[in-house]
Design a binder for these strands. Structure first.
Length: 152
DNA sequence: GCCAACGTTGGC
DNA sequence: GCCAACGTTGGC
């Protein structure tokens, strides 16, 4: 059982959008970073939990919790020339990009903001808070996870 | 909109 | 393999 943090711009896809999906489930497509891909493909397991992080918005922070509900499989948006995440170098015979399905678990009563997270010494080693970190998928330690749950 | 900090690309 | 140029992320 592992814990994760996954970023999305709420203007593109928010935690409310996820909640409103059929079965509250959605393929987490569009990841085009090798490190993030490797974690989804190699390290994520069905049943893992992830923070849903809202990035690039008025109130950046952790909005709630979702569950990983599939193993990794090829990202079909990479094969679609019409899609904004199309990648001509990925094809079905040799897929370059992968995704997992995620399911809504719950939304926090309030967003735990990036600013607030930075105020806690217990979280100072969190990957999210490291300088220059731009990964859209990253691991969260069990201690960090439980501490953050306690902030809600 | 700015820009720091990265990641990727491609010439050599 | 180096590295300059370019593109992207994402907070502010």
């Amino acid at each position: 059982m592992n814990y994760w943090l996954m970023k999305s711009e709420p203007g593109e896809f928010s935690i409310d959008d996820l909640k409103q999906r059929p079965k509250k489930t959605e393929p987490w497509d569009g990841v085009r970073n090798y490190q993030a891909r490797n974690m989804m493909r190699d390290d994520m397991q069905k049943g893992d939990l992830a923070f849903f992080y809202h990035s690039n918005c008025d109130e950046p922070g952790i909005a709630g919790i979702m569950e990983i509900v599939s193993e990794a499989y090829p990202d079909p948006t990479a094969f679609d020339p019409e899609d904004k995440h199309f990648d001509a170098k990925s094809d079905a015979d040799n897929p370059r990009w992968f995704l997992v399905d995620v399911r809504f678990k719950r939304k926090f009563k309030r967003t735990i903001t990036l600013t607030e997270l930075r105020e806690h010494r217990a979280l100072e080693n969190m990957k999210l808070l490291q300088r220059g970190n731009r990964l859209s998928v990253m691991p969260v330690s069990r201690d960090e996870w439980e501490y953050i749950i306690g902030l809600e």
